[in-house]
């Protein structure tokens, strides 16, 4: 199952909620302000590191680039483009957006 998070972890608890509920083996895709969670040294880094062991963690590259954080992405995070986003939606059985 695909879980999409679009809120900054410093602004909202959306990422926490997602990681609390999501089942191991699923995919977490960070988009929009959600991509701030992948920055090395950010306050949510340890949470995201733990998540990397449980889920496939992806971030939408255009959103990462737009925010000037492309050179600070944590190891283990997979960057995807828009076509990759569509592939993720297509290859997962269902999808929850953590609005």
């Amino acid at each position: 199952m695909l879980h999409i998070v679009n809120k900054s972890p410093q602004d909202r608890n959306t990422l926490d909620s997602c990681l609390r509920v999501a089942q191991a083996g699923g995919t977490v895709l960070l988009i929009e302000d959600g991509v701030y969670a992948v920055v090395k040294g950010n306050a949510a880094e340890s949470k995201l590191k733990a998540a990397l062991g449980k889920f496939k963690v992806c971030a939408l590259a255009p959103d990462v680039d737009a925010r000037g954080i492309a050179d600070r992405v944590m190891d283990g995070v997979t960057l995807v483009d828009y076509a990759g986003f569509v592939d993720l939606v297509a290859e997962n059985k269902n999808c929850q957006s953590w609005l």
Binding site: M1, V21, G26, N94, Q96
Partner: peptide, 18 residues
């Protein structure tokens, strides 16, 4: 629990998020 709910969520054909 959150985990039980996550499991149920996985079983759905369609999840509508609000």
């Amino acid at each position: 629990s959150s985990a039980e709910l996550g499991k149920l969520m996985e079983e759905q054909d369609v999840v509508l998020s609000f």
